[in-house]
Design a protein around this nucleic acid. Structure first.
Length: 581
DNA sequence: TAAAGCCAGATCGGTATA
DNA sequence: TATACCGATCTGGCTTTA
């Protein structure tokens, strides 16, 4: 039996371990809830046969902490575990400093570090085991697998031996799970319409070995196993078609989901596919080990947009938004065709991002091309094409290149014309907001399965709403928006959503909230009581610290902005817990 | 044939300055 | 507020080497 708990302290963990057969799996969740996991990772509510008298301790990590503290705990935990301290020791240190944290409302990292050093020096022998455990966790192995390996191989075993044991153990589990499918008691049914030959081509670099995450014939994601450290890394497969996209082979129509999240409320999380290594492993691990669906929006519009989605939506009978948007640059921007040279073979634009080419670049390119009466020589073509791709430029005249305009961003991303225009929104704001937005057709394709489930409308908790990509997608699908709580930090974006809501004559209720970190369990409980529960929790947390375009603070999941993922998880957990009752 | 090396291409960004 | 300028990381295809 594996226990996952939201309000863990070391004392509780120790207490649980004494019960026998119990392993502590997860120690960060926001709500005051416990889950018992069976061997398939399926969650069920806390079994009341387990008895402990630690209510006061639970209270310290649970409801008495402000909601924002939970995210801080998670960040601190990740931070110090990353430094090599054991998870248990870090939790204990955070626990000991928790009163100061909650009272001061600020990170007390130095105090925690002091406590950690103290705990480490007090218990060096335990620390040796902890260090082994910590190394294995850092290598990407699940906590429970690492514990089993140390238990079976002994604390003195070499890391390589432990890693070999875990790999063999995981492989065995994977084979077991494949054999159990599709009619096991604890997973949803699995089916696919694909044949092995239809599957995306898999990368066969000689530097890495790839383990395909197969569900019968389907391959949704790829686990990379590096020869150097035997660390499993999720990375997007190519072509990036997820569980399937319109007009492409390889449609997967169902999959396994942990029973605890196999039904309502539905949730949908989005972020950049090409995040730093290991980020999607962490996200997936928090989101119930659900495999990410990596999709490039080039299958839905004329621009690339490689994103990962983790959700518990049904995947059978998806349908695209109509009308189908133009799928090539030339169709989307017909006025460019006249000036498009034959040696520029692009049919898709690169990802639409928040920044655009400076005029110096397009001016330099114009002057370069003007030197040639006809087609420029190949070396010049190559240099120009490189700049064109880098800055995502289109041909707007003879030898004249230009970056896209905000209204073209809107069209390519599936938003209504002038969605972000006017009302005090600057041009810079528009590029920034649109560059961060959902591609509506892509998201709507995934959400289209909800249309039959909610014929009378839907209650939505929209986190990190941005300019309302989720709301626009649901509206365009014809799903009535009954109650929408839209949480968005930027005032300019909240205004855009408010204007869109009024312009589209919505009959439901829109409540806009500023800060995701201030959404408390009490507040959620009030909304749930008032609306009868949320049907969909949707959002894409900030990607600033994931993006390859970020040259300064690409710090991964621990980055200042991207760590807000933990807030998504905290709120999702809280909603599911409240609505379970 | 596998492994390693090389290189081109892509990227929901950040910051200083006018 | 708008503009200009700022590399790093990762993937994937290709070639070379053992």
């Amino acid at each position: 039996m594996v226990l996952s708990c939201s309000t863990l302290t070391c004392d509780i963990a120790t207490e649980l371990e004494k019960l026998g057969g119990v392993k502590v799996l997860t120690c960060y969740l926001a709500s005051k809830s416990w889950y018992v996991h069976d061997s398939k990772g399926t969650s069920s509510p806390h079994n009341k046969d387990i008895d402990w008298n630690t209510d006061d301790e639970i209270e310290v990590f649970g409801e008495s902490s402000a909601s924002g503290s939970s995210a801080k705990h998670a960040k601190l935990l990740h931070h110090f575990v990353g430094m090599g301290f054991s998870r248990e020791t870090v939790i204990k240190a955070i626990d000991e400093n928790d009163f100061a944290l909650s009272m001061a409302g600020e990170d007390n990292e130095e105090d925690i570090m002091e406590t950690l050093l103290k705990l480490t020096s007090e218990n060096p022998s335990t620390e040796e085991n902890d260090e082994t455990l910590s190394i294995l966790i850092d290598m990407g192995y699940p906590f429970e697998d690492a514990l089993i390996a140390i238990d079976k191989c002994g604390p003195q075993a070499e890391i390589s031996d432990l890693a070999d044991f875990i790999s063999a153990f995981q492989l065995e589990k994977e084979i077991d799970s494949l054999q159990d499918l599709p009619n096991t008691e604890n997973v949803a049914s699995v089916d696919t319409q694909t044949k092995p030959s239809d599957q995306p081509h898999l990368h066969t670099s000689k530097k890495v070995k790839l383990l395909n995450n197969k569900r019968k014939d389907g391959i949704y994601w790829v686990r990379e196993k590096t020869s150097a450290v035997d660390m499993e890394i999720i990375h997007p497969p190519g072509p990036m078609t997820g569980f399937g996209v319109p007009n492409e082979v390889g449609q997967v129509i169902s999959r396994e989901l942990p029973r605890a999240v196999a039904n309502k409320p539905y949730f949908y999380f989005e972020n950049v596919a090409l995040a730093p290594k290991g980020v999607w492993n962490s996200i997936s691990r928090f989101l119930y080990e659900i495999e990410p669906e990596f999709v490039d929006s080039k299958y839905f519009c004329a621009a690339m947009r490689k994103r990962g989605y983790i959700h518990n939506l049904p995947i059978h009978n998806r349908s695209p938004l109509l009308p189908i948007p133009p799928l090539t640059i030339q169709e989307a921007l017909p006025t460019t065709e006249k000036w498009w040279p034959s040696w520029d073979k692009r049919t898709k634009l690169n990802c639409l991002i928040t920044s655009t080419a400076p005029s110096t670049v397009t001016d330099r390119l114009r002057k370069t091309l003007q030197k040639f009466d006809d087609e420029p020589p190949q070396n010049v073509q190559g240099n120009v094409l490189q700049e064109i791709r880098k800055w995502n430029l289109v041909w707007v005249g003879k030898n004249k290149l230009a970056h896209l305009e905000p209204d073209e961003y809107e069209m390519l991303l599936g938003f209504p014309k002038d969605h972000t225009r006017g009302g005090g929104v600057t041009r810079t704001d528009r590029f920034k907001s649109l560059g961060n937005a959902f591609q509506v057709d892509t998201v709507a394709y995934h959400l289209s399965v909800l249309k039959d489930h909610f014929p009378n409308g839907i209650n939505v908790l929209s986190l990190f709403s941005g300019i309302g990509g989720a709301e626009v997608a649901l509206h365009r699908l014809g799903i009535m928006l009954k109650n929408v709580i839209s949480v968005e930090i930027a005032e300019v974006n909240r205004n855009i959503i408010q204007c869109w809501w009024e312009q589209t004559n919505q009959t439901g209720n829109l409540i806009e909230v500023e800060d995701v970190q201030k959404v408390s369990s009490d507040q959620l409980r009030q909304w749930i009581t008032k609306f009868g529960g949320f049907d969909l929790i949707i959002g894409g947390s900030p990607c600033n610290n994931f993006s390859g375009s970020n040259r300064v603070t690409r710090h991964g999941l621990e980055g200042e902005k991207s760590s807000l993922f933990y807030e998504y998880f905290r709120i999702l957990e809280a909603v599911m817990e409240i609505q379970k009752k």
